[in-house]
Amino acid sequence: MVYELFAHPDAGTVALAFTSPRHLADALGEAQPWVATSLGVLAEGMREHGVTVRLDPVVTAPHWTPDDLAAYAGAVR
């Protein structure tokens, strides 16, 4: 599993987590590679690396496009 981390001006390095696939798509766009996990497990694992988890953050622009997702899928096969 790969975690995508983001720079945050107030929190340093963060991982984003969403309470539903709809919240994820609303924030980052429809084309998202994602996996369901327990927030506790995610937060604990991230904390071990000094990373904060942001739950249902407001994001100003989509991140992945369908082409990005297809390229990533091809690269990890």
Rank of each mutant, 00 (worst) to 15 (best):
T52S: 11
M1H: 10
G29A: 04
F6H: 14
W34V: 06
L39C: 00
G74K: 07
Y3K: 14
D67T: 15
H23S: 09
A25G: 13
D56R: 03
D56M: 02
L42Y: 04
T19Q: 14
P57N: 08
P62C: 04
T52M: 07
V51A: 00
P66I: 02
D10W: 08
V53L: 00
H63P: 00
T37Q: 07
R54N: 07
A75C: 08
D26C: 06
W34S: 03
A61R: 14
P66K: 01
P21S: 06
T60W: 04
V59E: 03
A31F: 06
R22F: 11
H8E: 15
Y72M: 02
Y3M: 14
P66L: 01
A31K: 04
R47F: 09
G12P: 09
V51T: 04
Y3V: 14
L39H: 01
A17D: 00
A25F: 12
G45H: 03
T13G: 08
A31C: 06
Y3I: 13
L42N: 03
V53A: 03
T13F: 12
R22S: 09
P21I: 08
V41T: 12
A36R: 09
Y3C: 13
D68L: 06
M1T: 11
L55S: 01
A70Q: 11
T13E: 08
E48A: 11
H23I: 07
V51M: 00
G29L: 04
G74N: 12
H49P: 07
L28P: 04
P33G: 03
P9K: 15
S20Q: 08
H49S: 10
A11E: 12
V53T: 02
T52I: 10
A61Q: 12
W34N: 06
T13V: 15
A71D: 13
P33L: 11
T52P: 07
S38L: 09
A27W: 12
Y72A: 05
L24W: 01
L55C: 00
G40Q: 02
S20L: 09
S38Y: 03
H63I: 08
A75R: 12
S20G: 05
A70G: 07
P66R: 04
G12F: 10
H23M: 13
R22I: 09
D26P: 01
S20R: 01
R77Y: 11
G40C: 05
G40P: 04
D26F: 08
L5R: 09
L69Y: 10
G45W: 03
T65W: 02
L5D: 06
R77M: 15
M1R: 14
A15C: 08
A43C: 12
V76Q: 13
L16N: 06
Q32W: 10
P62L: 02
S38R: 02
H8D: 15
A15T: 06
L24A: 06
T37I: 10
A17G: 01
V59K: 01
R47Y: 12
T13S: 10
E44T: 10
Y3G: 15
T19I: 03
E30D: 11
T37M: 13
E44I: 07
